[in-house]
Design a protein around this nucleic acid. Sequence first.
DNA 1: TTATTGCATTTTGTATACAAAATGCAAAAT
DNA 2: ATTTTGCATTTTGTATACAAAATGCAATAA
Lengths: 214, 214
Amino acid sequence: MIEYTDLSQPIYKRLKEMIRNGELKQGEKIVQEKIAEELGVSRTPLMKALLALENEYLVESIPRRGMYLRVLDYKEIIDIYVCREALEGMAARVLAEKKDKSAVQKLKTCFAPFLNQSEIDEKEYAEADENFHSLLIKLTGNAPLDNIYFFSNIHDKVVGHGLVRTPQDTLEEHFNIIKAIEDGDADKAETLVRSHINKSKELLINQHKIQKSE
Amino acid sequence: MIEYTDLSQPIYKRLKEMIRNGELKQGEKIVQEKIAEELGVSRTPLMKALLALENEYLVESIPRRGMYLRVLDYKEIIDIYVCREALEGMAARVLAEKKDKSAVQKLKTCFAPFLNQSEIDEKEYAEADENFHSLLIKLTGNAPLDNIYFFSNIHDKVVGHGLVRTPQDTLEEHFNIIKAIEDGDADKAETLVRSHINKSKELLINQHKIQKSE
DNA sequence: TTATTGCATTTTGTATACAAAATGCAAAAT
DNA sequence: ATTTTGCATTTTGTATACAAAATGCAATAA
C-alpha cells in the first residue's frame, strides 16, 4: 500500500478517474464542498488538486463563480492533434538520433502481442497504442517535452473517445515508425509519425463534415 | 487600475517577476510563511500561486519538505529549444496555411522599428524577439498550443538569459519567416523557424563545449 | 575530535471559521 | 404574464488554528 504525505495527490488521481469514466460530466460545475464531502476531505487539499487540473486545462475556473469541467469541442480535438503532430514527431526524430537500442526494444514490445494474431482485441490494442505514444515521448529523456505532453493531457483528451482508426490500419504504420527509429533515419521517423497522426486527424475532420451535412 | 477578485493572480504575477529579476534565486527554498508575510497575504492564496508555478515547472514541490525554485541546467535549456523547434515550427506551418493577412501584419509590426536602423538597441530588440515568438503561437488560434507554450514557460526560461545571437544575425531570418507565412508556403515557414531556433541551440551547445574544455 | 541522541523550533498539510460575493426564489411592481 | 426587487441560502476566497513532520542545535556518547 502506498502511503501519501500529501492528500491532494490521491484526490487529483481520483478526480482524473472521475473525469475519465464520466462521474463528472463535461461542463459540470464542481461544487467544492460537495466533492470534498464525497471524498471525505476538506476543501484545502481538494483545491490543490483542482488547481492542478486547471493548469492542465481540464478544469476552468471563473473567479468567484466556480470551477467547471471544460468541454472538449471538435475544434479543440483537432487542435490537440496538431500539437501531437508537432511533439510526437519531434520525439521520433530525437529518438532516431539517439540510437538507443533498449528504447527501440521497449517500443517493439508494445505491439509484440499483436504480431501474429488474426483477431485483434480493440480494447487491448487501444491500450498498447496509448502506451506506445506515451513511450515515444518518455524515451527521449527530454524532461520538458515529457512535462508538456503529460500536463497537456494529450492522451486523456484524445483517447477515451476510442480508437480513431482500426488496428489493421495502424499496426503496420507503428512498425514502420519503429523501424525508422531503429535505422536512425530521423527525417523519416518524424515524417512517419506526423502522417500517422495526421491520418487520424483527417479522418476526424471528414467524419465531422459528414455529421454536419446530415 | 485592475481590480482582482482572486488574490492568487497578482501573487502569481509578483512571484514570476521575483523569479525573473532574481529576487528569488534558483534552488532557493520558498518558505511559505515568510513570503506570505512579505507580500502581506495569507498562505492560502500564496499556495494557489505556487501551485500554478509548480505546474509550470518553475517550482518543485517535495511533500512535507517544501517548495524549491527549480534550477535550469544546460541540458534543460537545450531540451527546451527542442520543444520550441517543434511547437513554433508547427505554429508557422499553421499560420502559413491560414493565410490571415492581419496576422502577417502583426508579425511585421514587431520588427518594423528596426528596419532602417543602423544601430539596434539590444534590449529593445530582445523584447521584439520575445513578442514575435509569442505572437507566432498566439496567432494560430490553436488554444491548446498556446496553453502548452505559455504554461511551459518556454520564454521565461530561455529569454532573460539575454539574446543568444545578434540582431544582425537574426533580423533577416525573421523577415524571411514572415515572408514564407505571407506566401502561404507552409513547408518553408516551418523549416525556416526550425533552423532559426536550431541555430541558437547549436550556438549554445558550442559555447558549452568551449566552457567545458577551458 | 566526530557521531548520535533528544528536544525546542520551524514549517508544512489539513481543517475550519468567517466575510463577501453569487445564486435562487418568492413577493411586489409593471 | 413578465420583469424587478429583496432576502435567505449557497458558495467562494481568505485567514487562521492546529497537528504532524522536518529541521537545527546543543548535550551526550563514542
